[in-house]
Design a protein around this nucleic acid. Structure first.
Length: 298
DNA sequence: TATGAGCGC
């Protein structure tokens, strides 16, 4: 039987493993990036059998900023009527409305603005017919539920801010409109009444020319269910064109819906298409009736 | 059941 030889200069792999095991050392994890491939090398000891593993993971890095943003948004959860929809737009609930033109104040916001254009939520915002100046909700400012609480608070706050800065010596009647500096900073839309110094206050919601939007483009919708609300009507009629006003008849005391409503479009042809498209439409287990409205007594 | 509000001049 040959004697076993032991070479001190070349420790066996078993000893090596043992040594490394004793010291608990493993090669450090490495992370390298070559081109658009990122490689992460990791080492690990299995706790059960003590075996060492080398774990190599490679990733392809998408370098285009916009694509990353899109990928991120794809993970957003759908909600509302689209909660259970498959990925991508649903033609039953997604419509393209009139063009909405926006004015951007500074060019350095262009990138940001482009990004927002791709944002589905912002597309929806663009389709909103009205935007409350107090709470940004989709109703007229005069109909804002916070009109009597938030509105005065915001105004007071703006006055305080105005007085605490360089505008101290200005007369109280001409306090700066707070929305203007804040909005131009973000490079977003500034309503016409706030442009050119924003001295004209309280006229922003005036309808354009009398007669252009009102009487001849108003339809009456009847046989509505009692729990139909203005927002439901807005969603129902928005596809036919831009709406200038929605009035849902309600009992003044009880607030209960009387089951009919008036929808005013900006264009008469949109109203005509709405009549053709929605009359006979099943809505909330009822068949809607839509026709031209007679002008009211006033 | 069914053709809307209120403002200020």
């Amino acid at each position: 039987m040959p004697s076993m030889e032991y070479d001190d200069s070349k420790p066996s792999w078993a000893d090596q493993v043992e040594e490394e095991g004793d010291e608990g050392t493993l090669p450090a994890a490495k992370e390298t990036i070559k081109g658009n491939i990122k490689t992460i090398t990791d080492y690990k000891i299995d706790e059960d059998d003590g075996k060492k593993y080398k774990i190599v993971r490679t990733f392809k890095i998408e370098t285009r900023k916009a694509s990353k943003a899109v990928a991120r948004r794809k993970n957003w959860k759908k909600f509302g009527n689209s909660e259970f929809d498959a990925p991508g737009p649903n033609v039953a609930t997604t419509t393209v409305s009139d063009d909405v033109f926006m004015t951007f104040i500074s060019s350095k916001e262009d990138l940001n603005a482009q990004d927002q254009d791709e944002d589905p939520m912002n597309k929806l915002k663009g389709q909103k017919i009205v935007s409350c100046r107090i709470c940004k909700g989709d109703h007229w400012t005069t109909r804002c539920p916070y009109k009597d609480t938030l509105g005065p608070m915001q105004k007071e706050l703006a006055e305080q801010l105005g007085l605490s800065t360089a505008d101290k010596d200005k007369p109280a009647g001409s306090e700066p409109e707070p929305a203007q500096p804040a909005q131009s900073k973000t490079g977003k839309y500034v309503p016409p009444s706030l442009r050119d110094g924003g001295t004209r206050r309280g006229e922003s919601m005036q309808p354009n020319r009398r007669g252009e939007s009102d009487d001849n483009a108003t339809i009456r919708v009847t046989n509505l269910s009692e729990d139909t609300r203005e927002t439901d009507l807005q969603e129902l009629f928005r596809p036919f064109g831009s709406i200038s006003r929605i009035y849902l008849a309600k009992d003044k005391n009880t607030g209960q819906s009387k089951g009919f409503a008036f929808i005013s479009f900006h264009r008469r042809e949109d109203a005509a298409r709405a009549i053709a498209g929605v009359s006979g439409f099943g809505y909330d287990h009822l068949i809607l009736n839509v026709e031209w409205a007679k002008p009211s007594n006033n």
